[in-house]
C-alpha cells in the first residue's frame, strides 16, 4: 500500500509538482531497504542526489584582502609625507638662516671696505692742513 502512495508521489515529482515535504518522503523511501521491486529503477536517482550533497570543498580561502593592504600602504605613505614635510621644513629653515648669515656677512664686509676707502680719502684732509700751516707760517 505504501508503494501505491510512492507511485503517486513519483508522478507528481516528474511533473515538478511535489512539495519539499513530499520530496523528503520520496528520498526517505528510496534510501530505505523496503523499495518495491518495480520501483527499484528509480532508486539510483535519489541515491545519487543524497550522495552528491555530501561533497565538500576542501580548500581554505585566503582572506588577506587587498583592501587591508591598501590601508597599510596609505598609512605608510602618510607617515613618509608628514616626516618629509617636517624634516624638509627644518632643512629649509637652516638653509635660510645660512643664507641670511652669508648675506649679512657680505653686507658688513662691503661696509668695512667702503669705510676703509672713506678713511683713505679722509687722510688727504691731513695734507690740506699741512699746506694750510705752511701758508700761515710763511705769512
Amino acid at each position: 500500500m505504501e508503494s501505491n502512495r510512492i507511485e503517486q508521489l513519483l508522478e507528481k515529482y516528474f511533473e515538478a509538482h511535489t512539495t519539499e515535504a513530499e520530496e523528503r518522503d520520496l528520498r526517505k523511501y528510496f534510501s530505505g531497504d523496503q523499495v518495491a521491486e518495480h520501483l527499484e529503477p528509480y532508486r539510483p536517482m535519489f541515491a545519487y542526489f543524497s550522495e552528491a550533497k555530501q561533497e565538500r570543498s576542501v580548500r581554505q580561502v585566503p582572506l588577506k584582502t587587498r583592501r587591508h593592504l591598501y590601508q597599510w600602504i596609505s598609512v605608510a605613505a602618510m607617515v613618509v609625507l608628514v616626516a618629509g614635510v617636517y624634516f624638509g621644513k627644518q632643512y629649509q629653515e637652516r638653509k635660510e638662516a645660512e643664507y641670511a648669515y652669508l648675506q649679512t656677512k657680505k653686507a658688513l664686509g662691503l661696509l668695512a671696505a667702503n669705510l676703509d676707502r672713506g678713511k683713505e680719502k679722509v687722510a688727504y684732509l691731513h695734507e690740506f692742513e699741512e699746506t694750510k700751516q705752511k701758508i700761515y707760517k710763511n705769512n
Binding site: Y13, F14, E15, A16, H17, P41, Y42, P44, M45
Partner: peptide, 21 residues
C-alpha cells in the same frame, strides 16, 4: 519556468536511467 525546466530534467534523468537499466 523553473518548474518546466525541473520537470524536463527529472524526466531526462529517469528516461536515460531506465534505458540503461
Amino acid at each position: 519556468a523553473v518548474r518546466v525546466a525541473l520537470s524536463r530534467a527529472r524526466k531526462a534523468v529517469r528516461d536515460q536511467l531506465i534505458e540503461k537499466h
